Amino acid sequence: MFDRLYDDWSSLDNFQRTRGVLKMMAKIIYSLWKDGNNDPLIMAGSLPFADTDTRNEFTYYLPAGWDPVVDRDIDGPRAETVAIENHDARLGAVHACRRTARTIFLGSAPTTSSQLVRGIEMERVLLGSAQPEQQLGLYEDALRRLGDKLHYLNSANSRYWFDTRPNLRREMEERKKRFKDREDVFPTLRQRLNNLGGCFGGVHVFTGSADVPDDWTLRLVVLAPDSPYSKTGPNAALNKALEILKSRGEQAWHRTMQRRSEPRRQPPMYRQRCNLLAS
């Protein structure tokens, strides 16, 4: 942790290497002592960012925009790391998510223009998070959870870093919440699927059976996404398909019933092959 402070954080403007590190460590040690922390080592994962004085000391040297990152993704009562640990007792028992996020923050927040590669490697994340005799698998699991849930965490080539801009995945998830299935998604799907043609005489997308003509034409009926297919459990797609086959709205399929009552005829190609073999 001292190497990170002396090497990485001292590259920031207004950060005095010796005085700045001593001031940070004084706040860290006092906060940990006040909270009765019993960790055998003060590591990057031990940083008490839930403490306002400690957090402000770190964010003071960073560009604007880091307070929401800490509050939402790293530490504090509303942080996503706390929510994950509250739902998983294994991770919560050792504060695996918070320790992992703190380590990534310490190693990646001080970014400079001369930095060629962003982020810190997974091995260093585990080294700064796990305490002696703890299982590394817990922190590897925590890192995977953070990658799926956090808003500002980025990763590439087994390196991890925080940024003040939301990552692409979370930005996509946030945008998806703006759209509703029936009002936005279904009409777009219908518009694109209606362009299907090929061998079908008609394509009927998300329509009821009453809107499908009762004729001899080969037609494609596309079920709506709210009738999904499932190999196990209730199969809404199969039930919907059977419902369409049984009746056309409130009436029966006249041509289909007529077709079923006709004697089965052998296809022309089949008869031609039989004649050829018999000759």
Rank of each mutant, 00 (worst) to 15 (best):
V94Q: 02
A83R: 14
A64S: 12
G119Y: 00
R265V: 14
H87N: 12
E171H: 09
F2R: 13
D67C: 02
G76R: 03
S158K: 15
E174W: 07
W253C: 02
R178H: 11
D39A: 14
R124K: 13
R145L: 09
L193H: 02
D215A: 05
A89K: 13
H204D: 01
V185D: 03
N167Q: 06
N195R: 12
E121C: 08
A224R: 08
D75G: 00
R165P: 01
L168N: 12
N235A: 06
R192Y: 10
D88N: 14
F15V: 08
A224D: 15
D8V: 10
P48N: 06
L62S: 02
S108M: 02
R118K: 15
G202E: 05
Y6M: 07
R99D: 01
N56M: 07
T18M: 07
V185H: 06
V221S: 01
F200D: 03
P48V: 01
E250S: 13
I42K: 04
E80R: 06
P63W: 02
D53G: 09
N195H: 10
Q191H: 09
S279Q: 13
D88R: 05
H87M: 07
R182W: 11
E140N: 10
P228N: 09
R17I: 11
L22Y: 07
V70T: 01
L193E: 01
Y270G: 05
R19V: 14
E121N: 11
A130E: 04
I104W: 00
K177W: 07
F49R: 02
P77C: 02
T81Q: 00
G119M: 04
S46F: 01
S230F: 11
A93V: 06
L5T: 03
D148N: 11
C274F: 08
S155Q: 14
F58E: 01
R102E: 00
P68R: 03
Q251M: 11
G92E: 02
H87D: 11
L127K: 09
G233A: 10
Y139H: 06
P225N: 11
R175C: 10
M172W: 14
P166M: 13
R165Y: 07
R265N: 11
M269H: 10
A142E: 03
H204E: 01
W253V: 00
R182Y: 12
D226C: 05
H151K: 10
N239Q: 15
N14Y: 07
M269N: 13
F162T: 03
H151T: 15
S11K: 13
V125A: 03
L245N: 04
A26F: 09
I74W: 02
Q272P: 05
N195C: 06
M257T: 08
A210R: 13
D3E: 12
E173M: 12
Q258T: 09
E250R: 10
A278T: 12
D7F: 10
R17T: 14
